[in-house]
Every structure is written in structure tokens, then in C-alpha cells.
């Protein structure tokens, strides 16, 4: 296709050109909170001494925001098959009264995520699952910039009182070991530095396995998304268990 990639659908009588699909993965939508994200906000970068505890909203629901890119949004999947929806189900069957908001935007990079963080955190949010960076890796964007963006996002989230679960990403090996090593290291470093809950690789056990992915080889299929949800759950559950006070009350409804 030689046209632009903006067509949200192919021409009625045509079929979607290949490049269109590709652009879908990459086409960016990202947030912007102009005043809050200027260069001059070093305060947000400072690690918080005490991890904020999730609080309970008036309605007693545990609010979790799954913040990420197409892997979170569930590109190519019905909304109820995307991993946040699967996670919601796990929470419910484990007895938690929780609501998982899918705040995934396909194609989003860390730069975009940083700018829409405030929007996603509006209202009461107890836990933020931060799963960005995949598109930075796909596009080979500078690693130091990604690190900077992620750091700021963690800071903003914690300032708002949310607990952060950071999910790591991998850059594709075709970018060369130099890049992929630095890329991987970023997440470890951030997790250690900010002492946030950490999941080394969001797609652990899913990436690269044809049966768990869609035809593009990037995005998990329904089964893959279920695995991702299980994987996230393994890191999320301890956060709930460690919760005290109101959170625990919310977590175990009926006080049983």
C-alpha cells in the first residue's frame, strides 16, 4: 500500500494492505497532560521512601488499572479475551471484589504512556499494572529515553497513591544484543531502584510460541492472553495478600 496509514478501515471494496496491519501495531495514541509532564518536573522522579498502600474506594471495590499497549488492549481479540478481562475473572473467582480497567492503547510507547498517566489515574486507583515499552523496542527507540519515561510514570502513579506492578518487556533479538541487553536491564534497574513489584517479562512463556500467538507473531491469542493473565496474577496476588487494613477488607468481602 502506498497510501497513508490513517485509514481506520480499508476501502470498502479493498482488503487491508499489509503495511496497514503493521501500522496498526505501531500507530500511536498517547496521552498528554501538558502541565504535568514538562521537562521541569524532577520531583516526580524521586523515589518515594514508602510505597503507598492501595486504598479502598467508596464503593468498596478494589480498583486496578492495566496500563499498557496493544498487549494490554488485546489487539485482535474481543475485549473480554484481553488479559485485563481475564485477570478480572481470576480476581472474582478468588473472591476479590475488584474492577480491572483496561487502559491499554495499541501502539503506545512509553512517551505516550507518560502523557496519559494522569488521565488513567483520575479517581481512586489502588494498583497500576505498568506494561509499556514493547513498542519502544519494536521501533528501536532509545533505551535511555524509555527508562526516563518509565521512571516518571512510576513516580506519578505512586504520588497518586497507587501501588505499581511493573511488567518487563523484551526487545526483539534482531535489534542486536547490544540493544536488547540494555533494554532488558532497564526494567530490572527500575524495579530495584523504585522497589516496586516486578514481573520480569510480561509475555513469559507466551512470546515466540506460535500456538499462543496470533498470525502476526506479536500479539497473544485468547489462550496466550489467559497465560499472560495467570502470569500477572502470580505477581499481583502477593500484593493483595500483603495488603492491610481497608484493602484487605475489600479483598475479602463479607468479612469471612
Amino acid at each position: 500500500m502506498m497510501g497513508c496509514g490513517m485509514q481506520t478501515v480499508p476501502p470498502p471494496n479493498g482488503r487491508p494492505p499489509r503495511a496497514f496491519i503493521f501500522l496498526l501495531c505501531l500507530t500511536l495514541v498517547s496521552g498528554c497532560v501538558p502541565a504535568a509532564t514538562g521537562e521541569d518536573q524532577p520531583a516526580a522522579l524521586e523515589p518515594a521512601r514508602e510505597p503507598a498502600r492501595a486504598a479502598v474506594a467508596d464503593d468498596g471495590l478494589l480498583r486496578i488499572v492495566a496500563f499498557g499497549d496493544s498487549l494490554t488492549a488485546g489487539l485482535g481479540l474481543p475485549a473480554e479475551d484481553a488479559y485485563p478481562a481475564r485477570l478480572q475473572e481470576r480476581l472474582e473467582s478468588a473472591g476479590y471484589r475488584a474492577r480491572v480497567v483496561n487502559a491499554g492503547v495499541s501502539g503506545e510507547t512509553t512517551a505516550g504512556g507518560l502523557r496519559r498517566m494522569a488521565w488513567a489515574l483520575e479517581g481512586e486507583v489502588h494498583i497500576l499494572i505498568l506494561a509499556l515499552g514493547g513498542n519502544d523496542g519494536l521501533r528501536g527507540l532509545p533505551v535511555d529515553q524509555m527508562q526516563d519515561n518509565l521512571a516518571r510514570m512510576i513516580a506519578v502513579a505512586r504520588d497518586s497513591g497507587a501501588q505499581v506492578l511493573l511488567a518487563g518487556m523484551e526487545a526483539p533479538p534482531n535489534l542486536g544484543a547490544d540493544y536488547t541487553d540494555r533494554f532488558r536491564g532497564t526494567f530490572e534497574q527500575l524495579a530495584a531502584e523504585y522497589e516496586v513489584a516486578y514481573l520480569p517479562f510480561l509475555l513469559e512463556g507466551v512470546a515466540g510460541i506460535a500456538e499462543l500467538n496470533q498470525a502476526d507473531g506479536i500479539h497473544p491469542n485468547a489462550e496466550g492472553a489467559e497465560r499472560v493473565a495467570a502470569h500477572v496474577w502470580s505477581a499481583l496476588e502477593p500484593m493483595l495478600g500483603a495488603a492491610q487494613g481497608p484493602l484487605a477488607a475489600a479483598a475479602r468481602p463479607g468479612g469471612s
Binding site: 485509514q7 476501502p11 470498502p12 500511536l28 498517547s30 498528554c32 505516550g112 502523557r115
Partner: peptide, 29 residues
């Protein structure tokens, strides 16, 4: 007119202000 590649096309087009302060990015052709 989908074949007119100069302007692209959107299935849903919103009136400015509809999104409140929803953050977004831009593209340029």
C-alpha cells in the same frame, strides 16, 4: 472517498471538545 490518499479517513469523527481532556498523540502526513 477512501481512494483519496491525501486526507486519510476515519469511521468515527468527533466534534472538538467531545473528549474533554483525554490525552492523545498526533500523526502527520
Amino acid at each position: 472517498q477512501w481512494d483519496d490518499t491525501r486526507s486519510g479517513g476515519f469511521m468515527f469523527l468527533f466534534r472538538p471538545g467531545s473528549f474533554g481532556g483525554a490525552p492523545h498523540s498526533y500523526v502527520a502526513f
